[in-house]
């Protein structure tokens, strides 16, 4: 009930106290992002790890746009992440080095192709949809090897030039951190906004009861397609930024293993919570780095941890945290 009431209060936009609070949140988020690279000033590797974690966070958020909003499960989301990486990498070698143009062109290409592919996929539901996404990602994976002259095949796409921003080269690690951070924060803000918009509510409606949605005149497939395309496009943005940052793209980016990892970020963080998958991705990436430096068998530990998480905290990290928060609030109230 409490959750419902606050969600309702949010619908009536533009109330002065909320606006003040929003400004405060924006200021705090901006300040944290601005200061963070300086905290890691002596640790260039950690700053790079942070950027990797943020990339993963953007991809995780992108999958939650699809899975969290419409209930469609994708086993092949890395296809779009990798597609964005290869598209931006190839464009940067041939067309322009301007980072803004590269990202925009990648987004456009992805939106067009994802809409065409999605138009076929969204007609399916449940397991069929999930299996088709996996099959589709394997096709994209294979294409990299078919056109290995262009893509570098197994060696990956190498020699990607340093991108520029209005003629200035983008190479400082802290600048990259700010780019990833900025893209993540803006995407999250937009995703949260859409959640409250008519579109976001219609998505939740088709997730909960698609039959009824079509009987009140909603175009269920079109709504799913919008979710699929936006999700793919955001994943491609993450891929594009990653390849420009990294200077090379490997076919591993497109593999089913990568898709599985993205899905794990989302489930670990809390499906449908938008913020949760971001936390899941960051926690996973950082933990992966440290655990894999101790042991090669890190996947075994992660698999076990994953199973444990799903059983103990089915709402993911976000669910567990908000549970603690709610209990804390209740006991504070009781204490007064």
């Amino acid at each position: 009930m409490r959750e419902q009431l606050t969600a309702d209060a949010g619908v009536i936009a533009g109330q002065p106290p909320r606006r003040g609070k929003a400004i405060l949140v924006i200021a705090a988020v901006a300040a944290v992002g601005a200061v963070f690279p300086f905290l890691l000033a002596g640790e260039p590797f950690l700053l790079m790890l942070a950027s990797y974690a943020l990339t993963a966070a953007i991809v995780a958020l992108s999958l939650d746009l699809l899975t969290g909003n419409t209930g469609l499960l994708s086993f092949g989301h890395a296809a779009w992440y990798g597609f964005g990486a290869y598209a931006a990498g190839l464009l940067s070698k041939t067309v322009t080095s301007d980072i803004v143009l590269l990202v925009l062109m990648t987004m456009l290409a992805t939106a067009v192709i994802a809409t065409l592919i999605g138009a076929v996929l969204v007609r399916q539901i449940g397991k069929t949809f999930a299996i088709l996404t996996l099959a589709f990602s394997q096709i994209i994976f294979a294409i990299v090897f078919v056109f290995s002259g262009l893509t570098g095949g197994e060696d990956g796409l190498q020699g990607i030039p340093v991108p520029t921003f209005f003629g200035l080269q983008v190479f400082k690690p802290e600048v990259w951190f700010w780019i990833f951070y900025g893209v993540l924060v803006i995407s999250l803000a937009f995703a949260l906004h859409v959640r409250r918009s008519p579109l976001g509510k219609a998505w939740l409606a088709i997730r909960d009861n698609a039959e009824r949605a079509s009987f009140i005149g909603m175009n269920v497939n079109r709504l799913k397609l919008i979710a699929y395309s936006s999700s793919a496009t955001l994943a491609a943005v993450a891929g594009a930024l990653f390849v420009l940052f990294n200077g090379a793209a490997s076919p591993d980016l497109l593999s089913w293993f990568e898709s599985g990892k993205i899905l794990m970020y989302v489930v670990l963080g809390g499906v449908g919570t938008l913020v949760g998958p971001i936390l899941g991705a960051i926690a996973f990436t950082v933990a992966e780095h440290y655990v894999s430096s101790f042991t090669d068998a890190w996947l075994i530990y992660f698999g076990g941890l994953f199973v444990l998480m799903v059983i103990v905290a089915p709402g993911g990290i976000f669910g567990a945290l908000s549970g603690i928060w709610t209990r804390g609030a209740a006991s504070r109230e009781a204490a007064q």
Binding site: I12, S197, P198, L199, A202, A205, I216, G217, M218
Partner: peptide, 20 residues
């Protein structure tokens, strides 16, 4: 939800407070 669907507002992302 049904009213918005009838009014063709289902896919809109920006909606003035007055419409809501």
């Amino acid at each position: 939800l049904a009213i918005r669907s009838r009014e063709g507002m289902t896919t809109s992302v920006w909606q003035p407070a007055s419409a809501e």
